[in-house]
């Protein structure tokens, strides 16, 4: 039905959005199921990339020629995301190491001191 028509059509923004969606969901599922803290971090990276794909798709001059396109800002947003992802990864890794060094396990479920 709709998905089938996608295959035949020329590649448009929708396709990119689909890819972005798949990446996003993979990230979510990864974060929700991985018990390894770093697995969760990887899930975060995936989510961010999913978002990046969407930004680029929306801002790309080729995919959308119409005036509604966000133009350069799409790409710039992607750039910001990349840089911030780097920063975030650094901090996350630091916390992960700290957590590992104090609790001696990388299992996320061990960190439930804040339960109700």
């Amino acid at each position: 039905m709709i998905l089938a028509s996608l295959v035949t059509e020329p590649v448009g923004v929708a396709h990119y959005l689909i890819v972005g969606a798949v990446l996003f969901i993979a990230g979510i599922v990864c974060m929700a199921t991985k018990r390894n803290l770093l697995g969760v971090l990887m899930g975060v990276e995936l989510v961010l990339n999913g978002a990046n794909v969407n930004f680029i798709a929306i801002g790309s001059p080729y995919l959308r020629g119409d005036a509604a396109s966000v133009g350069l800002d799409g790409q710039l947003m992607a750039l910001f995301v990349i840089v911030l992802a780097a920063a975030e990864a650094a901090v996350a890794l630091a916390i992960a190491l700290n957590f590992y060094n104090t609790v001696h396990t990388i299992d996320v479920d061990a960190a439930d001191q804040l339960r109700g």
Binding site: T33, K34, G116
Partner: peptide
């Protein structure tokens, strides 16, 4: 209170 399970995932 019990809904706050404390598990990140």
């Amino acid at each position: 209170r019990r809904i706050q399970t404390g598990s990140l995932r």
